[in-house]
Amino acid sequence: MAANVLVWCIWVIAAFACLASAVAVVSFRNPFFSALALIGNLASLAVLYLLLGGEFVAAAQVLVYGGAVMVMFLFVIAYLGDRTEEAPWAGGPSWQAVGTVLAAGAILVEVIVAIGLTTGGELTHEHHIARSFGSPEHIGRLFLTDHLLAFEVTSIVLLVAAVGGVVLGHHARANEADARA
């Protein structure tokens, strides 16, 4: 019983952190702080993943996202400096903005209602799971068996992105070469 309360507490804290940081990402004026807030978001999500039995995913979240991606973000933001600042919500709400907010709100309500309808008992009955559910070994095995192709394609996409990084990096350098010439 105590364990349940503990899990609930962790869930509430993590969920709250997750939401707060998401709102922060979207609303901060300075991308640097937004990026930092995203790190908080990722970390709290990792906690939620752990609660859901996704050990490997949580670890990957922290390493891949929190480590690699965010470092890249922070590096770029630091490199660009104050060019990236933007006054959010400046100039009053445009019709477009009002429309989008309304549309997003409508989608949100719709989806939550949809889930509420479904939840009429179904989602509460969780599947019984083994202790090793979501362990690195299991996920790794799946990647090499049922999802072999997905695994391979993921690596190809990463490679393509790397090529893209190289090409776009050239872009920047070529421009400087032009400027010198």
């Binding site: 997905a150 394609v153 190809i156 996409v157 393509v160 893209g164 872009h171 070529a174 421009n175």
Partner: peptide
């Protein structure tokens, strides 16, 4: 595989769009 395939060609195309500086 649907999502991965989509991203595969999309990312290639994003770069191709921007390739000519």
């Amino acid at each position: 595989t649907l999502f991965l395939g989509l991203e595969w060609f999309s990312i290639s195309l994003y770069i191709l769009c921007a390739i000519d500086y």
